[in-house]
């Protein structure tokens, strides 16, 4: 479903991604791990279309070239990015924001808008399933949210927007165990045969709760090692250094 080939990204003079190859079929959860500065967040940003990088190579979603599309075009084609640092948007109600986002997706699919009342019912269903406080809806987008609340809000949005491909950028960072469980449960719940997920993480502990199909190690802008879930145990035991060293050397 997601197919990335020889992807490079340069910001200013610095090459951050240096020829990434990655294939994620439908129904699979892939984990991308790697040391700080490996380019993990850049990979997420480039897939989602953030400004500020010079990009070469290809990235397709269901055969559609992503790199030629605006961020919103990518989004409505089913690409969702759960942000590492979700921004606050003061004065904009979370409910209105989520409904506008959902309706943008529906419009792209040629479906009618969801009315405010129907949306509230729908949102409450998703929130109940994800164990998220209904008060979230009446607050401004992420404003005054704790780190954990922001991440849960990301999972809620993912749940409502039902993406084809979800990229979760360090969604587990900075979470206490309870919040981590909610996030992990959300990921597991949204795992379907039609959907692919790329979970970017710095820490193996999320992987006690989410079982990946494939694990990739990103270092110095390239995927240096790929393997099954067992690779996580190796990383936990030995750290990234041996893996990274062998590839770079």
């Amino acid at each position: 479903m997601l197919s990335i080939h020889d992807l490079t990204a340069t910001a200013g003079e610095t090459r951050i991604l240096d020829g990434v190859d990655l294939d994620v079929p439908a129904g699979e959860v892939h984990v991308v791990m790697g040391p700080n500065g490996a380019g993990k967040s850049t990979l997420a940003n480039v897939i989602a279309g953030r400004d500020g990088y010079e990009v070469t190579g290809t990235a397709t979603l269901d055969g559609v070239d992503l790199l030629g599309l605006t961020p919103e075009e990518r989004a409505v084609r089913g690409l969702f990015l759960a942000f590492q640092y979700p921004v606050e948007i003061p004065g904009v109600g979370n409910a209105a924001f989520l409904r506008t986002a959902l309706n943008a997706h529906r419009a792209a699919r040629g479906e009618p808008e969801v009315a405010a009342v129907d949306f509230l019912g729908l949102a409450r269903e998703h929130m109940a399933r994800l164990d998220i406080d209904p008060a979230f809806l009446s607050r401004a987008v992420n404003e005054g949210f704790s780190g954990g609340e922001k991440k849960r809000n990301e999972i809620l949005q993912m749940s409502l927007l039902e993406p084809r491909l979800a990229v979760l950028d360090e969604t587990d960072s900075g979470l206490d165990l309870d919040a981590l469980r909610i996030v992990a449960a959300g990921i597991e719940r949204l795992r379907t045969p039609e959907r692919a997920m790329v979970v970017i993480t710095h820490y193996p502990r999320l992987l006690d709760l989410v079982r990946p199909d494939r694990v990739h190690v990103l270092a110095a802008g390239r995927i240096v090692t790929s393997g099954g879930p067992e690779l996580v145990a190796t990383i936990e035991a030995e750290g990234f250094a041996p893996l990274v060293g062998s590839a770079v050397g």
Partner: peptide, 24 residues
């Protein structure tokens, strides 16, 4: 970028942010 990643056009995103700014 956050709004656009959620599918809002640049115009809708700006509108939403400005309306939020004026909320009070």
């Amino acid at each position: 970028f956050y709004c656009r990643q959620r599918g809002l056009s640049e115009e809708d995103a700006t509108s939403m942010i400005v309306n939020g700014f004026c909320r009070e």
